[in-house]
Amino acid sequence: MNEKKMKDIFMDGPIPAGFIADSIQKHSTKTNIGAHSIFLGQVRADELLDRKVAAIDYTTYKEMALEKMHEIRESIFAKYELTCMHVHHSLGTINAGEVCLFVFTSSKHRKTAMDACEEVVELIKVELPVWGKEIFEDDSYTWKTNK
């Protein structure tokens, strides 16, 4: 495995639309890219046990999560011919309707970008030690299970 510095993927609060737009715009000068694939995870106002989810409070064991994300990143770059990959995950309380996960893959060809993006999202959901506490409108809560 190469010894690149681990990137900090976490940001406090929701991921702003302007941040996403800026990330896309920064790639306009990279002429070796033919395709981008983007996944945006958004907090849903699910109804559970007759209560409506108002927000999710995300927490993590950051050091462990960054090590795991580095492993995921290295495995994806070994499997797919990507130009770049960016992952950003929210921490803290994210309200229903706000973006909490941004995965952005780029490559010469669309299928590569799309397949890599989908695999990264699935690996994050299964392997990344990030926990979400679903907070209901009445301030009660339950721990979220990933689906």
Rank of each mutant, 00 (worst) to 15 (best):
Thr60His: 04
Asn32Ala: 13
His27Cys: 13
Ala54Met: 10
Tyr58Leu: 04
Thr31Ser: 05
Thr60Gly: 06
Asp46His: 10
Gly34Val: 05
Glu67Ile: 14
Asp57Tyr: 11
Asp57Met: 13
Met64Tyr: 09
Thr59Asp: 06
Asp57Gly: 01
Lys68Ile: 15
Ala35Leu: 06
Tyr61Ala: 01
Arg73Asn: 15
Ile24Cys: 00
Asp57Ser: 01
Met64Asp: 08
Met69Arg: 09
Leu48Gln: 02
Glu71His: 14
Glu74Trp: 07
Ile38His: 02
His27Tyr: 12
Glu63Pro: 08
Glu63Lys: 13
Glu47Lys: 15
Tyr58Ser: 04
Asp46Cys: 04
Ile56Gly: 05
Arg44Val: 08
Gly34Pro: 03
Ala35Thr: 11
Leu40Arg: 09
Ile24Trp: 01
Ile72Leu: 02
Phe39Met: 06
Thr60Ser: 10
Ile38Thr: 02
Met69Leu: 09
Gln42Lys: 15
Ala65Tyr: 02
His70Asn: 12
Glu63Phe: 09
His36Cys: 10
Glu71Tyr: 15
Ala55Asn: 05
Asp46Arg: 11
Gly34Ile: 08
Thr60Asn: 09
Ile72Cys: 00
Ala35Ile: 10
Ser28Asp: 12
Asp46Leu: 07
Gln42Glu: 13
Asn32His: 07
Met64Lys: 10
Arg44Ser: 09
Ile38Leu: 08
Thr29Asn: 13
Lys30Cys: 03
Ala35Tyr: 08
Val43Ala: 09
Arg51Pro: 02
Tyr58Thr: 05
Glu67Phe: 15
Leu49Arg: 13
Thr31Asp: 05
Glu63Asn: 14
Asp57Lys: 11
Asn32Thr: 13
Lys52Ala: 03
Met69Tyr: 13
Arg51Thr: 00
Glu71Met: 11
Tyr61Gln: 04
Lys62Trp: 11
Ile38Glu: 00
Arg44Asp: 01
Val53Cys: 01
Ile38Asn: 05
Arg73Pro: 07
Gln42Asp: 09
Val43Asn: 03
His36Ile: 07
Ser28Thr: 11
His70Gln: 10
Lys68Ala: 07
Gln25Pro: 00
Val53Trp: 03
Leu66Gly: 02
Ala35Met: 04
Asp46Gly: 06
Thr59Gln: 12
Met69Glu: 11
Gly41Ala: 05
Glu47Thr: 15
Lys52Tyr: 06
Tyr58Asp: 08
Phe39Gln: 03
Lys26Trp: 03
Glu74Val: 14
Glu63Met: 11
Ala54Ile: 08
Met64Gly: 05
Lys68Arg: 15
Lys52Gly: 06
Ala35Pro: 11
Asp57Val: 06
Ala45Ile: 12
Asn32Tyr: 15
Ala35Val: 06
His36Pro: 03
Gln42Ala: 10
Ser37Leu: 01
Lys26Pro: 02
Arg73Glu: 14
Ala45Tyr: 11
Met69Asp: 04
Arg51His: 00
Leu49Ile: 13
Lys52Arg: 15
Arg44Tyr: 09
Val53Gln: 01
Lys62Gly: 07
Leu40Gly: 01
Glu63Gly: 12
